[in-house]
Measured scan of single mutants.
Amino acid sequence: MSRVPSPPPPAEMSSGPVAESWCYTQIKVVKFSYMWTINNFSFCREEMGEVIKSSTFSSGANDKLKWCLRVNPKGLDEESKDYLSLYLLLVSCPKSEVRAKFKFSILNAKGEETKAMESQRAYRFVQGKDWGFKKFIRRDFLLDEANGLLPDDKLTLFCEVSVVQDSVNISGQNTMNMVKVPECRLADELGGLWENSRFTDCCLCVAGQEFQAHKAILAARSPVFSAMFEHEMEESKKNRVEINDVEPEVFKEMMCFIYTGKAPNLDKMADDLLAAADKYALERLKVMCEDALCSNLSVENAAEILILADLHSADQLKTQAVDFINYHASDVLETSGWKSMVVSHPHLVAEAYRSLASAQCPFLGPPRKRLKQS
């Protein structure tokens, strides 16, 4: 649940008159999402009104509101027999009622949201009550392989729920002597030191190019640089560091992050930047690179990204790559990247197969709970 924001200063709310007192009302909304995959969808019983329910879910471990999704594969009634019906059901509720908006969509073979439908307002739910769409999607369109909505005969539904909580009022009075504290510009100011090479005390040599930097900042941000300058190493004695395995453009992006906490060109060089972040123990930059690479996972590059993640101990990226390969196994196994990995990294192939087997055979063990970014 997000923290209630402070109200904007009255002088910034309007260029008009300023009242002596004010009130700011925040209506709290808890948002969460749920993904439900139905394997072997074409084998569902086709009687009209037949119901399939998901397991229950909530916004978190401490949330007492429990929900589930309900599907009628062949419609709810005679009117909707040519459609799939989809509903959000409130299973248990400690209150007399709650209000919530919802959005349903289908994830296609690429994991993209399609055929989205959402409620136009927050509906009133009581325990045992459901709301949804009797005519969510035509069955003939859903079952047509050309539309790519049932890869490997799996129907994957994605649901986003927004639950309306209580409202909170914050009130106060205006004073004539309003003090406005300026925003912190530390990142910009440190970035200026790097860009202008002011007050530098060490030189970093990268592929024949020299960059002036500040030992204190490098040591504070990177345990690797800290070790170089702290001990009686040649880098500490000469205040000069030779860097041979990072390209200059990648190095500059890494230094921008060290000084400012930002990497504006990360998406263009996420793979190389991940390697640099791993070498210099820049954990936050490493996770930022993992996130960017996750966003660009595809059938063509899944094997290469899995190898990269394994090489640099990028655990979150590795998990996402394995899950992606499992979901698109029939396509990924035909790529040149996968065939190369079979020869060069057989242990990763074995890991992917083990994960695929456990996903398809849940009876082999208890269900695993899916539970950071600093």
Results as ranks from 00 to 15, higher is better:
356 L>S: 02
170 I>Y: 03
193 L>K: 01
344 S>V: 11
67 W>I: 00
37 T>W: 03
73 P>S: 06
247 E>I: 04
311 L>Q: 05
374 S>L: 15
245 D>C: 08
354 R>D: 06
368 R>A: 15
23 C>D: 00
28 K>W: 05
287 V>S: 02
299 V>R: 10
340 S>W: 14
161 V>Q: 14
309 A>Y: 00
341 M>Q: 00
365 G>F: 15
162 S>M: 10
231 H>Q: 14
289 C>N: 04
239 N>S: 01
346 P>M: 06
263 A>F: 11
122 A>F: 08
7 P>Q: 08
54 S>L: 00
172 G>Q: 09
215 K>D: 08
23 C>K: 00
255 M>T: 07
108 N>T: 03
373 Q>G: 11
71 V>F: 09
250 V>N: 12
21 S>R: 11
139 R>N: 02
347 H>A: 12
325 I>G: 00
300 E>Q: 01
314 A>H: 06
47 E>L: 05
329 A>S: 08
209 Q>G: 14
351 E>F: 11
221 R>N: 03
126 V>Q: 14
228 M>H: 11
146 A>E: 12
113 E>H: 11
115 K>F: 13
303 A>H: 07
92 S>E: 14
351 E>N: 08
217 I>L: 02
140 D>S: 09
190 L>A: 14
50 E>M: 01
58 S>Q: 06
18 V>H: 08
142 L>G: 07
88 L>R: 00
158 F>V: 09
102 F>W: 14
195 E>F: 07
152 D>P: 08
307 I>H: 10
196 N>W: 15
65 L>T: 11
183 E>M: 02
9 P>I: 10
3 R>W: 08
182 P>V: 03
74 K>A: 09
2 S>T: 10
338 W>H: 00
16 G>T: 05
147 N>C: 08
194 W>L: 06
202 C>T: 15
175 T>E: 09
190 L>Q: 12
292 A>E: 11
219 A>N: 15
183 E>I: 03
43 F>S: 08
121 R>G: 07
163 V>T: 04
203 C>G: 13
47 E>A: 07
79 E>G: 11
15 S>E: 04
355 S>K: 02
91 V>A: 09
224 V>L: 14
300 E>A: 09
257 F>Y: 05
3 R>D: 02
140 D>P: 05
297 L>S: 00
143 L>S: 10
271 D>W: 03
155 L>G: 13
359 A>W: 06
220 A>K: 07
373 Q>T: 14
150 L>I: 04
172 G>A: 06
88 L>A: 08
55 S>E: 13
225 F>V: 14
362 P>Y: 15
347 H>R: 08
59 S>G: 05
34 Y>M: 06
215 K>M: 11
321 A>M: 13
168 V>E: 02
179 V>G: 06
39 N>E: 05
151 P>L: 03
33 S>E: 13
241 V>I: 04
344 S>F: 08
134 K>D: 14
56 T>K: 08
361 C>S: 14
97 E>P: 09
16 G>H: 11
271 D>V: 09
290 E>L: 09
266 L>H: 01
1 M>Q: 00
140 D>A: 07
31 K>F: 05
223 P>R: 12
355 S>I: 13
110 K>S: 10
193 L>F: 10
300 E>L: 12
342 V>H: 07
290 E>H: 05
155 L>F: 03
200 T>Y: 15
322 V>L: 02
336 S>A: 13
233 M>Q: 04
159 C>Y: 06
196 N>H: 02
4 V>A: 00
153 D>A: 06
258 I>H: 00
256 C>R: 01
34 Y>H: 02
102 F>I: 01
38 I>M: 02
353 Y>A: 13
229 F>D: 14
17 P>G: 13
110 K>N: 09
292 A>W: 11
174 N>H: 01
279 K>F: 09
29 V>T: 15
12 E>R: 06
317 L>C: 09
80 S>A: 11
37 T>N: 06
264 P>A: 10
218 L>N: 00
341 M>T: 04
236 S>N: 07
368 R>P: 15
245 D>V: 05
122 A>K: 12
229 F>P: 11
278 D>Q: 08
345 H>P: 00
193 L>Y: 08
203 C>Q: 13
277 A>T: 07
172 G>W: 05
67 W>A: 14
9 P>V: 03
71 V>I: 04
117 M>K: 07
234 E>N: 15
109 A>M: 08
142 L>C: 09
341 M>F: 14
118 E>F: 07
20 E>T: 06
